[in-house]
Amino acid sequence: MKAIYKREMRMYFHSMTGYVFIGFFVLVTALYFSMMNILMMSPQFEYVFSSVIMTFLLLAPMLTMRLLSEETKQKTDQLLLTTPVSIVGIVLGKYAAAMTVFLIALGITALFPVILSVYGTIAVAQIFCSYIGFFLLGGVFLAVGLWISSLTDNLIVAAVGTFVAVFLLLMTESIVSSASGSVAFSLLFAVVLAALFALYFYNNTKSKPYTLVTFGVLLAVIVVLYFVRPTWFDGLAGRFGMLFAVLTRYSYFAMGILDVSAVVYFVSFIGLFLYFTVRVVEKKRWA
C-alpha cells in the first residue's frame, strides 16, 4: 500500500496534475474569499466553502480519472495484481494519495481564515467544523471517482462519468424535491428498483431461473408491503433519493454542528465506494 501511495504521489507532482489541482482549488477559494470576506467585510468563511463545492465537478475527475483506468489500459495492473500486494492495499494506497493532494490544497486555504482572524474575530470552531465537513465531502467525491475509474480503461469515460456522478450528487436535493410523492409513483419506483436489483443479480450469476425467482420474491414483498403498510410508500422515491443527499449533510457542518450521524454517513459512503472499487478490481479476475 505504501509503495502504491508513494508512486501516486510522485505521479501527481511529477506531472502537472497535483499543481494544477492545488492551484485551481486555491485560486477559486481565494476569489470567493476576496469577494465574500474581504470586499464584503464579512468574517463568515464557511460561505466561501459552500461556493467552492462546485469546483469538485472538475477537480474530482482530475484527481481520480487515471488512478485505475490507466493501470488497466497500460496492462500495469498485471504487475500490481501479481505482486504480494492486496487489492485492498492497492485501492487504499491510491485513494490515500488523492486525499493527500486534496488535503494539501485544503491546508493552504487555511491561510484565509488566519488572515481574517488578524483583522477581526472569527468563529474558530465553526470554521474548523466546516473544514472537517468539506474534507469528508471531498472524500465522498474522490471515492466515487476512484470507483468510476475502476470501471473503465478509458480516461475520458472515467472523467465524464465522475463529472456526471458529482453533478448528480450535487443536484440530489433539487431532483428529490421535484419527484412526485404519490403512492403510484413510489410503487413504480419500487418495481424499477427491484428490476435493477434483478438485473444486477443476473449479471453476477448468469442464471435466468434464479433471477426470475429473485425478481418474483421482490415483487411479492412490494405487494405485501403495499397491503400491510401502505403508508410506507408515501414519498418512497424521495426518501430513497435523500440517501444520496451529501450537501444536506454537509450543511450541518457549515452551520457549525459536528453531527456524529453525518460523520458516520460520510465515512460509510466513502467506505462503501472503496469497497465497490475493490470488488470491481477483484471481479476482473473472474471475467
Partner: peptide, 25 residues
C-alpha cells in the same frame, strides 16, 4: 512474472520503476 506486454510505467525512469517494484514486493 513478465506478462506478454511488459507492465512498465512510461512516466518513470528505469531505476524509479524498479524501486517501485521492489517496494511492491
Amino acid at each position: 512474472y513478465l506478462p506478454e506486454i511488459p507492465p512498465v510505467y512510461g512516466d518513470m525512469t528505469v531505476r524509479e520503476y524498479l524501486q517501485f517494484v521492489s517496494e511492491l514486493k
